[in-house]
């Protein structure tokens, strides 16, 4: 005789972040224990708590695992080309200055193929928030070496260990002129959310690096264990050091990760500088682009 097990009917309750996501695209493509989803959740919470006008919020991604973030966000969302999320976002911001534009992409996308755009957008103090999820490796293409792979770590194209010095991204951003620079791991969900909120409230080129596990490739190639082991490592080996000299926050293989808010300054943005210059030199003749953009209509 078969036994019928009655189950309590699941409560038809919507996930709190559902309105911010394209639920019709879930399940997402990220692997179990990937850190990207956690970072998205923190960002969504920060958007919600910051009460930004979501209709005026655009998100741009490049290509790669983190490059899929834009595709899951229920915002005006642009999945652009590899490395070009920052200049694409620059066009959006300058084409309609009232927009709040966030770039969400990976370490390979933003600091490898897109590295030139990264440093120039920081130099210009372009008014965009850049979220870089750093998993130390090219994930989507199968674990190749990245500009962020720590010295000695293995990747599919450095099978005997990486011998290229990696970027220290907070230092790169800070020296190029970023006005807000922070680093967290995907374990630091409260602090990361707070950092997102803070950055959303600032103007200019804001940069948040989030260290996140890639257990499918980085951890497997380096025999670092499961997702749980990686979170344990973040727990044991991160140190929060607000205001740290960014020269000191480079990441060595399986060594301490310095987290915190390193830079929080205010400087005129590209648009502020442009308006000031034109107003000073052209006076009343200067006609700035309207906040709602240069769209010409009847």
């Amino acid at each position: 005789m078969s036994e019928v097990i009655e189950r309590a009917e699941a409560l038809a309750e919507e996930h709190p972040v559902a309105p911010y996501l394209r639920m019709d695209r879930i399940p997402h493509i990220w692997c179990p224990t990937c850190g990207i989803g956690t970072v998205v959740k923190c960002f969504v919470t920060a958007l919600e708590e910051s009460k930004v006008d979501l209709d005026k919020t655009s998100i741009v991604s490049g290509i790669g695992c983190t490059g899929r973030v834009a595709g899951y966000m229920n915002l005006d969302a642009f999945h652009s080309t590899h490395g070009r999320a920052i200049p694409f976002a620059t066009g959006l911001k300058l084409g309609r200055p009232e927009l709040f534009v966030t770039v969400f992409s990976g370490d390979g996308d933003l600091s490898g193929i897109g590295g030139n755009h990264f440093i120039h957008a920081a130099r210009r103090n372009m008014d965009i928030l850049v979220v870089l999820v750093n998993n130390f490796i090219y994930g989507m293409t199968g674990g190749q070496n990245a500009p962020t792979t720590p010295l000695g770590a293995k990747s599919s194209t450095m099978p005997f260990g990486n011998f290229e010095r990696p970027f220290n991204l907070p230092h790169l951003a800070a020296t190029c002129g970023a006005v807000y620079v922070a680093r967290w791991t995907s374990l630091h969900i409260r602090r990361l959310t707070k950092s997102f909120k803070e950055a959303i409230g600032r103007k200019g080129f804001r940069f948040i690096e989030v260290i996140a596990p890639c257990s499918t490739l980085y951890a497997r190639l380096n025999k670092l264990g499961t997702g749980f082991n990686l979170m344990q490592f973040y727990h044991d080996s991160t140190e929060i050091r607000h205001g740290a000299d960014t020269r000191d926050v480079g990441i060595d293989y399986q060594d301490e990760i310095i987290c915190g808010k390193f830079v929080d300054e205010q400087r005129p943005t590209f648009l502020d500088m442009m308006h000031d210059q034109y107003r000073r030199t052209l006076g009343d003749k200067y006609v700035p682009m309207p906040q709602e953009g240069g769209h010409i209509h009847e």
Binding site: V60, F88, T90, G91, L92, L94, L99, H120, G294
Partner: peptide
């Protein structure tokens, strides 16, 4: 970057 910015800006209707 120029071409990417142009595509981005065009999506604002400008």
């Amino acid at each position: 970057a120029s071409m990417a910015a142009v595509v981005g800006a065009s999506w604002t209707g400008t």
